[in-house]
């Protein structure tokens, strides 16, 4: 017996999901962050964020298709995290890293928070 492992399958599928997002195909939720709107797929959001997982597994909330985030969350920080969810690449700039970390904490994306903290610490050193 043998099997073939396609080593780039995860990135090929993720690229296709991002193409679907950019063409607004089968997106099923709008995330509102301080009046800015971001369309996305609930399944991708809940696969990446503890907060979205708890929202979309809650019988009372799973059919919501507009979600307003806490007004404290910065739209740019959220946008960077949304792009990360669909590309695995997290854009880190001096001017936005705190907004990204704050949004990641709120979205319960602990691994991103830890990585940002290590990046910050390393850049201070």
């Amino acid at each position: 017996d043998s099997c073939i492992q396609f080593t780039r399958h995860a990135s090929d599928v993720l690229l296709n999901l991002n193409r679907l997002r950019s063409r607004d195909i089968l997106t099923d939720v709008i995330i509102v962050v301080n009046r800015e709107h971001f369309r996305a797929h609930k399944t991708v959001l809940m696969a990446c964020s503890g907060l979205f997982y708890s929202i979309f597994t809650d019988q009372m909330k799973c059919n919501l298709n507009i979600i307003n985030l806490d007004p404290e969350i910065n739209p740019e920080g959220f946008q960077i995290l949304l792009d990360f969810m669909y590309t695995s690449r997290l854009s880190l700039r001096e001017t936005s890293i705190m907004a990204v970390m704050n949004a990641a904490l709120y979205l319960q994306m602990e691994h991103v928070v830890d990585t940002c903290q290590r990046f910050l610490k390393a850049s201070e050193e």
Partner: peptide, 21 residues
Amino acid sequence: YDGVTTIKEMGRSVHEIPRQD
């Protein structure tokens, strides 16, 4: 897949969805 020979395929695994139709 214990005990099964795994052959790694580095090429594309699925079709690529175009940026637009």
